[in-house]
C-alpha cells in the first residue's frame, strides 16, 4: 500500500505544511491552543517553539522505533512517547522559562493531545525514515507557529492596541509599542482579547487563507493547462 503513494521528498515534507497543508488553517487541527495562547504575540511564539520541539522529537523517535512497535500497540505507544516529550519540555520550561511556563499553564500539557502531533505520527512518521520525519515535524511545527503568530498579531494589535515584548521572555528588554492604543488615545477593540474575539479571528483568518489557497490552486491549474496547450 505504501508503494502506491510516492514518498514525499524532503523539501516537500518541509515546505508543504507552511501554507498549502498548514495544520491550523487548512487541516484545522490543534485549534485549542490557537485560541487560548494567542492573546499576545510573545506567548504564541513561545508556544510555537515548544510545540515544534515536541513534534520534532516525537516524530524522530516514533520514526526510529517504527519497525519495532507492533500494529496493535501503535496508538497507545505513540501517545506515551508524545506524553514523555511533553513532560520533558514542561520541566525544561519550568526551569529556564518560568514566565512562559506559568502563562501557558495547562496548555503546555495539552500538547500531548494536540491532534497535529498524533496526526503527523500516524500519517508520516510511522512510514518514513528518520530524517524526512524530522523535517516533516519541523515543517509542521513552523507552519503551526506561523499560524498562531498570525492570529496573535491580529488579537494583540487590534485587541490590545499595543505590541509588547519582554514580558514572557524576560531576557529581552521590556518594550511596548503603541499602535492602536497610546497614553491618551485608544482605538483598540478589547473584544478581540476575549474568547469571542478568538473564535472570530480564527474563523475569518481560516476563510481568508482558504481564499488564498484556492486562488493559488486555480492559478496553478491554469498554468498547467497553458503548458499542455
Amino acid at each position: 500500500m505504501d508503494n502506491a503513494i510516492a514518498k514525499p521528498s524532503k523539501k516537500e515534507a518541509f515546505l508543504a505544511p507552511l501554507l498549502k497543508a498548514n495544520p491550523l488553517f487548512v487541516l484545522v487541527l490543534g485549534t485549542c491552543p490557537a485560541l487560548a495562547v494567542t492573546t499576545t504575540l510573545e506567548q504564541a511564539i513561545g508556544m510555537g517553539i515548544l510545540f515544534t520541539v515536541v513534534l520534532a522529537l516525537s516524530n524522530v523517535i516514533i520514526s526510529a522505533l517504527r519497525k519495532f512497535i507492533p500494529e496493535y500497540v501503535r496508538i497507545p505507544s505513540y501517545i506515551v512517547i508524545i506524553a514523555t516529550f511533553v513532560t520533558v519540555v514542561k520541566l525544561l520550561a519550568e526551569a529556564f522559562l518560568p514566565e512562559l511556563y506559568s502563562s501557558l499553564g495547562v496548555f503546555l500539557s495539552l500538547i500531548t493531545v494536540n491532534c497535529i502531533v498524533l496526526g503527523r505520527a500516524e500519517a508520516f512518521a510511522q512510514d518514513n525514515p528518520v530524517l524526512p520525519s524530522l523535517l516533516d515535524g519541523l515543517g509542521n511545527g513552523l507552519g503551526y507557529t506561523i499560524a498562531i503568530c498570525i492570529i496573535a498579531l491580529f488579537r494583540e494589535i487590534l485587541g490590545a492596541g499595543t505590541l509588547s515584548f519582554g514580558k514572557t521572555f524576560t531576557f529581552i528588554p521590556q518594550v511596548t509599542i503603541p499602535l492602536l492604543k497610546g497614553d491618551t488615545w485608544d482605538y483598540s477593540m478589547p473584544l478581540l482579547q476575549q474568547p469571542t474575539g478568538a473564535f472570530l479571528v480564527l474563523g475569518i483568518v481560516i476563510a481568508l487563507i482558504a481564499v488564498i489557497v484556492n486562488f493559488r490552486a486555480k492559478q496553478a491549474k491554469i498554468k498547467k493547462e497553458e503548458v499542455k496547450e
Binding site: I81, T84, L92
Partner: peptide, 22 residues
C-alpha cells in the same frame, strides 16, 4: 511488554530531565 518498555524508557528520560532541572 512494549508499553511497559516505553513507559520505563519514558520514566528514565523524564527522571534525568527532572534531576537536571530541579
Amino acid at each position: 511488554l512494549t508499553l511497559g518498555a516505553i513507559v520505563l524508557g519514558a520514566g528514565a528520560i523524564i527522571g534525568v530531565t527532572s534531576a537536571i532541572t530541579s
